[in-house]
Design a protein around this nucleic acid. Structure first.
Length: 544
RNA sequence: GCCCUCGUAGUUCAAUGGAUAGAACAAGGACCUCCUAAGUCUUAGAUGCAGGUUCGAUUCCUGCCGAGGGCACCA
């Protein structure tokens, strides 16, 4: 399809040159209404102003030339108001694509932009203060799917989880566990003001009593460490439940210990971008065009998140990735520019860093919005959700919408309607095909590379084939925009066209040649479904 | 007050600046002697408001209204 488009574009360019029309950057894409043709270009509309002629006239001039010497596989060139030039592609082009798909198999649609390139995708990155919640779920699924989209283009991807087990949050976590520990033992305790109130804290305290006895003193390091270990283990388990596994966990502490933080602070200092004021250390972002300076080291001596984050990103840059992606919630929108600014001041290139912001999930339960807070233990965990509706439904739910939409997650509906989730529509198409293939096998029909593709001329077959050839193009689009919902939308449309085909055309019939051709057709549809579902991390059951 | 994201059908969401704005759920009809009806067909229903750019705007720009998030010596 890509080649064909290039050929047609070239033919259009040649014809406008021969008419001495100026060159324009025109579009060539399938029109929404298939009655107009398979591909349309807006070139004549773009030329209207320069040529001071009606777009229809220009279009007719171009079309006349094109019709004199049709590009390969183009059967007709037409013009429709207001001035689109439409190309009708011959059925044989689409029919021949089946062999292409079957030959490529599970690599059909792969791209090569990422060949011999590496990418790092940092996501989730939740500190181990509590279980993975539905809020983190959107991050997790997006990150994992974006990673797969990159892999599909040839990138070697490192899925990375960055965390900090040394800050304020973790200190309070330790104190919360300690308080519960003494509470259970019937001793005097003080629950911290901003303590974590979830019941998991008590469970951790209980397990500490079991493992370490009941004589731990206040301030014992076990409280925090045990909590961290236990929570981290749960997070990893929850992620695995979602089909996600990380290649690397990076602890913020590393950058203090290996001196990289001191190193880059020194470098900024020597560039006079750091100064002291009110007992704190500031980064002079105003000198770099920002509205106000930012604190790097608090008067308490603790660095702010910007410091280790900058060191961490520098580290990622130095590891030589061709592409670095951060998946952040909308609440981080204002924070990463500081980090990028610091990196630039250090003389580093940041063009290959892409920050993907996703909007928050609003949870709705009983018709009411639920304000989520890990600290207040007001949350729904990923595990609860996955256990209730299953991994496939959860993953599809998070990936079927654009990440910059604020989405409402109605828990009652999610569980009530989980059997109406559109993911089943895709899976059902796959299962149906598997069943037909099985049915064919039972009557002695096997897939063979010898089939007469020209028999596939039913309108529903052509309609299906038209969408199939676009798979590589859509995957490329998903990569360029880093938007997983493009994959989901593509598959949804593919499944629709397959289901329509199914209701109009029988595969296994008395007509052996037709059956063979249709078997090849549905096998190639299945290949695409499988490839797409794989990218989304969704299973493809053979029976439903 | 300033910044970011979003306002599309009753509801939840789609739509590389293009031609008649698509689905799903909910509401009203129809279709299984036929490879799984988790399907197909069909009726009704929407671009917050006001300008601007453009041959053409849901899409880009400005203002207003509304929702969410930010604007820390929290991450």
């Amino acid at each position: 399809m890509k080649l064909l488009k290039q050929q047609i574009s070239k033919a259009v360019s040649t014809s406008i040159t021969s008419l001495s029309y100026p060159e324009k950057d025109f579009s060539l894409a399938p029109p929404k209404n298939p009655d107009f043709g398979d591909l349309s270009t807006n070139i004549s509309l773009l030329l209207t102003r320069d040529l001071k002629k009606s777009p229809l006239e220009i279009a007719n001039n171009i079309a006349n030339i094109l019709n004199q010497n049709l590009p390969k596989y183009v059967s007709k060139v037409t013009v429709t108001p207001p001035g689109f030039i439409n190309f009708k592609i011959s059925d044989s082009f689409y029919q021949s694509n089946i062999t292409t798909i079957l030959d490529a198999g599970n690599s059909y649609g792969k791209g090569s932009v990422g060949k011999r390139k590496t990418a790092n995708v940092e996501f989730v990155s939740a500190n181990p203060t509590g279980p993975l919640t539905v809020g983190h779920g959107r991050n997790a699924v997006l990150g994992d799917t974006v990673s797969s989209i990159l892999e599909w283009q040839g990138f070697e991807v490192t899925r990375e989880y960055y965390f900090n087990d040394a800050g304020r949050q973790m200190r309070i976590l330790g104190q919360s566990v300690e308080a519960r520990y003494f509470e259970i033992l019937g001793k005097e305790f003080k629950f911290p003001d901003d303590g974590y109130e979830g019941s998991y804290i008590k469970k951790i305290a209980q397990s500490i009593i079991k493992d370490k006895g009941s004589n731990l003193p206040s301030g014992d390091s076990n409280f925090k460490e045990k909590a961290e270990d236990s929570i981290f283990e749960d997070i990893k388990k929850s992620l695995l439940n979602l089909g996600i596994h990380f290649n690397q966990f990076t602890n913020e502490k590393t950058f203090y210990e290996n001196g990289e933080i001191d190193k880059f602070l020194g470098e900024l200092r020597s560039k006079e971008l750091i100064y002291e004021k009110k007992n704190a250390t500031w980064f002079k972002t105003t000198a770099l065009g920002m509205e106000k300076d930012r604190v790097f080291i608090k008067s308490s001596g603790e660095p702010t998140y910007r410091v280790p984050d900058t060191a961490y990103h520098r580290n990622k840059i130095e590891r030589g990735f061709d592409l670095i992606i951060d998946i952040f919630g909308a609440d981080h929108a204002d924070t990463y520019p500081d980090v990028l600014l610091a990196l630039k001041s250090l003389g580093l290139k940041t063009d290959h860093i892409r920050v993907l912001l996703y909007q928050f999930v609003t949870l709705i339960r009983g018709g009411e919005k639920v304000k989520m807070s890990t600290r207040k233990a007001n949350f729904v965990t990923m595990d609860e959700l996955v256990n209730e509706v299953g991994t496939d439904v959860v993953r599809y739910f998070f990936v079927m919408r654009s990440m910059n939409t604020h989405l409402d997650f109605d828990l009652d509906l999610a569980t009530d309607q989980s059997d109406k989730n559109p993911v089943f529509y895709l899976q059902y198409a796959h299962a149906r095909i598997c069943n037909i293939i099985k049915h064919g096998r039972e009557s002695g029909l096997e897939l063979s590379d010898k089939f007469e593709s020209s028999l596939l001329s039913h309108p529903e077959e052509i309609n299906l084939l038209r969408h199939m050839v676009r798979f590589p193009e859509f995957m490329e689009l998903a990569y360029e925009n880093l938007e997983p919902q493009i994959v989901a939308n593509y598959l949804q449309e593919l499944a629709t066209r397959f289901h329509k085909f199914y209701s109009h055309c029988h595969v296994i019939t008395d007509d052996l040649d037709l059956s063979k051709a249709r078997l090849a057709l549905i096998t190639s549809v299945n290949m695409i479904l499988l490839n797409g579902l794989n990218i989304l991390g969704i299973s493809a059951p053979e029976r439903m």
